[in-house]
Design a binder for these strands. Sequence first.
DNA 1: GGATATCCTTGACTTAAGTCAAACCGGCAT
DNA 2: ATGCCGGTTTGACTTAAGTCAAGGATATCC
Lengths: 229, 229
Amino acid sequence: MDTENVIAATPLFQGLEKRYQKDLARIVIKQTYRRGEMIFAEGDQSKGFYIIATGRVKVFKISPEGKEQILHIFGQGEPFGEVPVFTGQPFPAYAEALAETSTLFFPRDDFIGLVRTEPSLALNMLSVLSMRLKRFTALIEDLSLKEVPGRLAAYLLYLSDRSNGANELDLEISKGQLASILGTIPETLSRILTKMTKEGLISSDGKRHIRIKDRMAIEQLANGEKRLT
Amino acid sequence: MDTENVIAATPLFQGLEKRYQKDLARIVIKQTYRRGEMIFAEGDQSKGFYIIATGRVKVFKISPEGKEQILHIFGQGEPFGEVPVFTGQPFPAYAEALAETSTLFFPRDDFIGLVRTEPSLALNMLSVLSMRLKRFTALIEDLSLKEVPGRLAAYLLYLSDRSNGANELDLEISKGQLASILGTIPETLSRILTKMTKEGLISSDGKRHIRIKDRMAIEQLANGEKRLT
DNA sequence: GGATATCCTTGACTTAAGTCAAACCGGCAT
DNA sequence: ATGCCGGTTTGACTTAAGTCAAGGATATCC
């Protein structure tokens, strides 16, 4: 997919006139990363932000002991690394490609120039950041107020919503990555999946496939109205 | 303080021409809340956002069992409740006045109209949201990757930084509120403060006053390089 | 200024989740 | 096939932090 098509298909740039999309295309720099490659590190100085053309990227924090907390996994058409563009400060987290990934890089100064002349672009970006704040709010709530089974239940429901309420879910990531999203470790996640299976809430065939069998119970778990025994 | 002076003193509106500040003053609605009064609830439909003229407001999540996680405590000149302005969705958290508080309320549609005509306002708001994302990132890191003593240590250093590195700290909030900021409960916080005092890291005279005695050790604690015994 | 309510601390106990270590499993390459 | 190698599961154990309950300290109000 060429640059202009990627831009045209990106939610951040919806509602912009064709000529602004052309201006955007003019400032981007294409980049590619291999699976496992670091895109930026916490503390790095930022020169701009990224949009994913193809591939997947995880943005995460890591503790001195090596425990990792994933903040977000980004896919096609999603922007990431925007925070330093507007704060002028270094990146507050790490970003790493989860697969072969190609990105469009938008240099800070050029992009801010466009924001100044195109209010819709500013409002779209405000919307993106606001959605992200909302997600972070939910993550904070999960980490602070829910136990791991509740977080997992909420995550399964989130996946289900993304596929229009389907009961057949594709994890798309390894269990280890999922544990890191939920703020726990693989062993704990594994035990909880086993429990949920034994209690008939889910069943799991393939490695990365889960079927919701008792949605009601999973909702109660996610809302803290029920616990695993 | 009258509306125009509050606006002129608000970081969000810095760098705006006088006439835009006047436009802003024209759209605001003044409101006052008593200590303990709810300003908005999670799930409420939003009609705009707020700036604090005087007083203090906590924004928080609460679990079914009543445990509370404070996301942010806002003071004079700070905006809050902006997320739904740009997402169009309901408030993702609760807001309550911690003291007698007066606010300026900016209706959504009027404000967005001004954002469309004044790019500096858009960029200032992008900066505010980005700073908040950064803070949330740090909170997520604390909750997921640090133990409570480390979170407390990080908070003490944060307070110290705010007063130019002073070792004499004023908590400004109750221990219960502090516990809620740190994602724990008053009992646990109390025990940890006792331990830190016994190990000579801090001393505590008045209720809401703490003196840093061993900054080095507190920094190590915050970075996970050291633990309380 | 004494009574009442709220906040804070302490103790004994429980528990969710982490650590460490070992076994298991399914692909992939040799 | 055979053997290696992530990723995953399971078991035994440890531990940080929560719960429950009581007592102490402060602040606040009439």
